[in-house]
Design a protein around this nucleic acid. Sequence first.
DNA 1: TTATTATATTGCAATATTACGATAAATAAT
DNA 2: ATTATTTATCGTAATATTGCAATATAATAA
Lengths: 110, 110
Amino acid sequence: MGASKTEHFSDKQNQIAAMAKAIGHPARVAIIEYLLSVDTCICGDIVNVLPLAQPTVSQHLKELKNAGIIKGSIEGTAICYCLNPDAINVLEAFFAHITINVNNKKTNCC
Amino acid sequence: MGASKTEHFSDKQNQIAAMAKAIGHPARVAIIEYLLSVDTCICGDIVNVLPLAQPTVSQHLKELKNAGIIKGSIEGTAICYCLNPDAINVLEAFFAHITINVNNKKTNCC
DNA sequence: TTATTATATTGCAATATTACGATAAATAAT
DNA sequence: ATTATTTATCGTAATATTGCAATATAATAA
């Protein structure tokens, strides 16, 4: 097979999974951290920051964009990428919810 | 190529990426939600809950375990899986940190 | 128009993931 | 010891991901 059986799962589960998957690569974690560190969103130099070739970086950016983690707007010749607060908030809420429930559990068998 | 260049990134970035990647599949999100929903950690029936064959579920559990998201302990014939609060807390802290910084940003270009 | 700059796309090779049938391993019950 | 029960592993096919060189596209500058 090889393809995920996404149709058997809820939209919410697929959304969380898609966003988590997008973050599931160290280069993309590094991109997120870089976007967070620069106050302004000049993003052409992401390529210079990462140890990867330009097409590879472009592809990683595309995946983050497809998952909704980042947004991009054309700024002349350059493209300005930045984090999408909505997506981050969804993930933050997901993990906050789990954290609360896990820490409240009395019966922890493991 | 095909293999991630993990050696070029920090341990922290690789750790976050590995955990996010483990959650980056709807079946594994469903497993996490199921583990959260049952008060006791009887886990043999995860197979019955998911629309996947037993070997596939076993493989998904293995990936969650390798990433540190869940823990498992042998309980007679069955194996008791449960969420690992430590891993969840790391992810929660990561996204909380991003959330705070993103929401504080005044210059949002996109 | 002709560069120059910035980013995206294409094509391809190497590798990883997903899924499952068949089978193994390990414990419990008879 | 034999049989069920539960989970893991092996083998394999289909598909996805990663990475980059080469090239294309699009906007600005000269």
